[in-house]
Design a protein around this nucleic acid. Structure first.
Length: 643
RNA sequence: GCCGGCUUAGCUCAGCUGGUAGAGCAUCUGAUUUGUAAUCAGAGGGUCGGGGGUUCGAGUCCCUCAGCCGGCACCA
């Protein structure tokens, strides 16, 4: 007999060789039907896999949505693989994990898959579900497994097994004739997967994520517990597409791209207004936080990048040119060397530290063509950069201040859920390990002092120092790095940066690189998506459009515009000979937050009828012009000036 | 950069198996002066991303370059 302890603490005795399924049956028939898999001593366990002695057991059902979804998605990946191999013999399978919202499976096949193949594949997948094939777990001998997969021509699978640690049991899961190397667990049978899945897209992906390896074909799918969830997900995707910044940017007249400037933005008046609002805001915040602002050349002698080490690491991605004077120049890909020159000009005293030098720097990077993505990844962008020169003793405190500032600023833009990632030394780096030990420790301590949760990105630091990344998520769930802090003991060394200490001797400061928006271009894109174009009033490029009903009100409309403009509001008139419906629609589509409608009535009364964009139950309010200006003026005040 | 897809009027898109391009919106002109998401009528506008090829003939087939889209890789 074995003793099974359930999560509520109750204990049940079962025969040797009993499985979670027997346990469930012993409790109730409905539980046995609902159970998907079990957690046995914290380990994922198939329902039909016998217990190995006394155990703590939790039965997982659909109610445990996170676990259930993960399992269903993983199982769906398996039937995708089976379906593909049924339909396209000669295709090799590799790996197929569950991911957020679904799963993917990577295949090796000469001929490309196309989305047109999806219908046939999905049909075959549904057949496999209908067949209700039991998933059966087997443990194979390592060498036999390798030989078997090699014999089948599955070289990728064989490679996976070869790379498993020696002691690891090789588990194989069978569904009917088909089987795959897999850690498990799986559902009892394919019928339990259900049909709330859909194949979404094909894409290339490198074997083991390494671009030197073979390129595989990845099929992405989404999978859910029921049709309702699936439909909801597809609906979410559609909605997310509507807030795509590239689409909204066009509708709102913010910017455009064109072939002659791949990865570079042509800012239109509305977009540039938004961009400038962000800069003004950040300038105030930085000034308030004890920063000074500088500006350094866009074009500098290439040698500066050789000194910094960027040329060696990123030379391929730098725009550089040799001029008739035989000097090689580079468009700056980052601002650090420039900032260092300002610091190094003249002598610095310990009394000046920490010295926080900010720069809205335009940088150019020749990003790989495939990396370009709307405003999120461009070749020409503006950083709200700053370099903080401080003593090692001041380092931690400065890091903390930056983290606080970043999070406070994100809140002003409505981002409360920000993920922080700590990245430590990469393989390709400069500087001694002792220096890295020091800088990593300092940054980590500062981070931990905030008490905030954070993720860990091993080996993802900058080549000169460890970094924190602040990650925001776009409309359709893609993550984008925005803010960053990097601790740097290396560049001060390379550029011979010093200050005179209290003792009269030269000392080496530490350099802190930081950006809060990161790229203003990217941040703008994220803002557009975050607000689905309905920007907060203080950021909206056109805050108010004064729209007339008949031409009788033209004169009054102009008066209103002038008064609002005098109050510092961004306002335009729309005097066109069009119906008010037409004007309302056009400016609503253009995401103008307030339409001030004026007709004969308003003109007589000195009033305005304000129509607010997307505010349910508050679509229209009639008030005096003075009241309107007071109310809108308040709305137009940036959040940092309200406190 | 890699894999796949796409590229037709300012915008969104249609154009079957090759036979010299269509719609809606926008623009312009005219009429309409209209109370909160598209007033009516008329007109102009593209040689089908660039280049090359196959063909009697190509937007439609092939090659090539570029850009964009979806991923992957990269991201100072």
């Amino acid at each position: 007999m074995i003793k099974i302890t359930l999560p509520d603490g109750s204990v049940r005795e079962l025969e040797d060789g009993a499985s979670p399924l027997d346990l469930a049956l012993g409790i109730s028939k409905s539980l046995a039907k609902a159970a998907l898999f079990a957690k046995v001593n914290g380990q994922d366990w198939d329902l039909k896999r016998p217990f190995e002695g006394d155990s703590d057991v939790a039965l997982i059902t659909k109610k445990d949505e996170v676990e259930a979804l993960e399992l269903v998605r993983h199982d769906t990946a398996h039937i995708l693989a089976q379906a593909v191999q049924d339909l396209y013999p000669g295709t090799q399978v590799t790996i197929g994990p569950a991911i957020e919202n679904g799963f993917y499976y990577d295949f090796a096949r000469e001929e490309p898959f196309s989305t047109e193949d999806f219908e046939a594949i999905e049909k075959r997948m549904r057949e496999i579900v209908d067949a209700n094939l039991p998933f059966e777990r087997e443990v194979w001998d390592r060498d036999e497994a390798i030989a078997k997969f090699k014999e089948m021509g599955e070289s990728f699978k064989a490679e996976l097994i070869e790379d498993l640690p020696a002691g690891e049991p090789i588990t194989i899961y069978r569904q009917g004739e088909w089987f795959d190397l897999c850690r498990g667990p799986h559902l009892p049978s394919t019928g339990k997967i259900g049909k709330a899945f859909k194949l979404m897209k094909v894409a290339g992906a490198y074997w083991r994520g390494d671009h030197r390896n073979a390129q595989l074909q990845r099929i992405y799918g989404t999978a859910w517990l029921d049709d309702k969830q699936l439909k909801a997900h597809l609906h979410r995707l559609e909605e997310a597409e509507k807030r795509d910044h590239r689409r909204l940017g066009k509708q709102m007249g913010l910017f455009h791209f064109q072939e002659e400037g791949p990865g570079s933005i042509f800012w239109h008046p509305n977009g540039w207004s938004l961009f400038q609002s962000l800069i003004s805001y950040m300038r105030r915040r930085q000034e308030n936080a004890g920063y000074v602002e500088i500006n350094t050349p866009d074009l500098l002698d290439y040698s500066l990048w050789e000194t910094s080490g960027h040329a060696e690491k990123f030379g391929e991605n730098m725009y550089s040119t040799v001029m008739p004077d035989d000097r090689k120049y580079a468009l700056k890909p980052m601002n650090c060397p420039g900032g260092v020159q300002v610091y190094n000009f003249g002598q610095r005293s310990y009394r000046e530290l920490p010295l926080r030098m900010a720069e809205f720097g335009k940088v150019h990077r020749y990003e790989p063509s495939g990396a370009l993505h709307g405003m999120m990844r461009v070749r020409h962008f503006t950083q709200d950069d700053a370099h903080i020169f401080c003593t090692p003793e001041q380092l931690q405190d400065e890091c903390l201040k930056v983290v606080d500032l970043i999070l406070d600023i994100y809140k002003d833009f409505g981002f409360d859920d920000v993920r922080i990632k700590f990245s430590d030394r990469p393989e390709a780096r400069i500087g001694d390990d002792e220096v890295w030990d020091k800088s990593e420790a300092a940054l980590k301590h500062a981070l931990e002092a905030t008490g905030l949760p954070y993720g860990y990105n091993p080996g993802e630091g900058a080549f000169y120092g460890p970094k924190l990344e602040f990650v925001l998520r776009d409309a359709i769930g893609r993550d984008w790095q925005c803010g960053t802090i990097q601790v740097d003991f290396n560049l001060p060394e390379r550029f011979d940066v010093t200050f005179t200490g209290e003792d009269g001797a030269d000392h080496r400061p530490v350099m802190l690189h930081r950006a809060l928006f990161g790229s203003l271009e990217r941040f703008t894109g994220i803002l557009i998506e975050h607000y689905a174009g309905k920007l907060p009033f203080w950021l909206a490029p056109r805050q108010i459009v004064v729209a007339t009903i008949t031409s009788d009100a033209d004169g009054y409309a102009e008066e209103v515009r002038q008064a609002m403009s005098d109050a510092g509001l961004r306002v335009e008139t729309d005097l066109r000979n069009e119906k008010i419906n037409y004007k309302v629609r056009e400016h609503s589509v253009g995401k103008v937050p307030v339409i001030a409608v004026v007709g004969r009535k308003e003109a007589e009364e000195g009033a305005v009828a304000l129509r607010f964009l997307g505010e349910e139950g508050r679509t229209q309010e009639v008030m005096s012009l003075a009241d309107a200006i007071a109310q809108l003026g308040d709305k137009a005040t940036p959040p940092d000036l309200k406190r």
